[in-house]
Design a protein around this nucleic acid. Structure first.
Lengths: 235, 235
DNA sequence: TTGTGCATTATGTATGACATAATAAAAATA
DNA sequence: TATTTTTATTATGTCATACATAATGCACAA
């Protein structure tokens, strides 16, 4: 079925340029030959000769793989296969000013889902040191009268720590990618006006639950904690 | 501050190639000039002249932007700014055979988080038609004796429908990206052996809750439904 | 053995040329 | 005049070649 859809793509949409085809061929090469990270691929000239295209085309195709993080090329050693840091890469291209508003709003939603869904991982992997650190962060919690930026920083510190506790690096990168988006969406006119800022479950409340509650309790508490955001999304 | 960090980058790590600099300059151009989607950017030759580099370099920089989905270039009209379909793009570079195992496992975890965290969005946006469709999918639920592939297909149909109900296109793309990863992780020796396949809350159970329950109930039920996966991650 | 320097090699950059496709302008026809 | 066809123009896509640059390894000398 994978092959079929591939064929379809090729037959139906033959608007593909030469570089497109070469790119596909190279990716397939990586897949087929089961090359491992660190292995090096043929030189540009060799590829050009073997595929019967100019070096320019090869270079463009390789460049694409490089941008996608599949390879890295050094001056003499040629190109070697790397394990792509996906989110690190797209972080570069996530530009709130360029992404369309619908996508931005959706990414905002994604963050809410993740923070609620991470409960089990927090409970599974948290250490006493983590709890201590959380408590320390919470102890510095600013009251509502405090200046705005400081509040933001505190939010990031607290929630960022939660992401960290999950021990999931990919998730952490995802959060870093979402941070500017979140901030942007929060302040642009994308969401409904915030009618009343109520703090339902506080950060301290969350920590208490982490310390002596259950994942289930945490999910509900976090959902409640994020109510201000949800209420701006829904009616 | 943005300028400072930029300077630092340039001074500390001047391993950046010409293309790197041009790329950064172009991205900055897009940001500064607040160009909207659909606006076209200067021609390659013009850029080459203005920045004092060869067309080769300009082309490579533009190509990077293209791979990142920031621009699209047509034969005559030049390049126009587009709203990048991030996940569509990285889907292409998500290759389970190339990603390292730690990342794969983490992406597996991400999926679990999302499916639990999506509860509120499902309840907020589901329509009677959706419920009807869900019931129809469930009615065809195969029993455990049925052939394996059919079971997989059914899983994808059901959970995919849930993603769809959230109305979040970005999430949907994210799922499509995760699908091959999920399958791969599930079958490779990455996770602990599956001791006993128990179906806790069934698909039908989930539908019942969607129809007459609450987000809170759904989260717990989904967590339970995914227990087989969780148990392979945790002890 | 250690270090310096040179040769080699593969990518990075520059330049010029032509192909191709999309658009606009001009010409031809009804 | 209106409409279609042809032609010209333009900007990207592809090719070819030459040279710059940096990393690697080898040879030679201290």
């Amino acid at each position: 079925m994978a092959i079929n859809s591939l064929m379809e793509d090729f037959s139906s949409l033959d608007t593909s340029s030469l570089v497109d085809k070469v790119e596909a061929k190279l990716v397939q090469l990586l897949k087929d030959q089961k090359l491992n990270v660190g292995d090096s691929i043929p030189k540009e000239l060799e590829l050009a000769e073997r595929l019967g295209v100019s070096r320019t085309v090869i270079r463009e195709a390789l460049l694409r793989l490089r941008v996608m993080g599949l390879i890295e090329s050094k001056k003499k050693k040629g190109a070697v296969i790397t394990s792509p840091d996906i989110f690190g890469i797209i972080s570069k291209s996530v530009n709130p000013h360029i992404l369309d508003q619908a996508t931005l709003k959706e990414m905002f939603e994604l963050r809410l889902m993740l923070e609620i869904g991470m409960a089990d991982f927090i409970f599974q992997r948290i250490t006493p040191a983590d709890i201590k650190e959380l408590k320390q962060i919470v102890s510095k919690e600013p009251d509502a009268t405090q200046d705005y930026l400081f509040n933001i920083e505190h939010e990031i510190a607290f929630h960022g720590k939660l992401y960290e506790i999950t021990g999931n690096e990919t998730l952490k990168k995802f959060q870093r990618m979402l941070l500017p988006v979140f901030d942007y969406v929060h302040h642009s006119g994308l969401l409904k006006k915030q009618v009343s800022i109520k703090r339902f479950v506080s950060h301290k409340g969350l920590v208490d639950i982490i310390e002596s509650g259950s994942p289930e309790m945490f999910r509900n508490a976090m959902r409640n904690h994020l109510e201000n955001h949800f209420s701006r999304l829904f009616e």
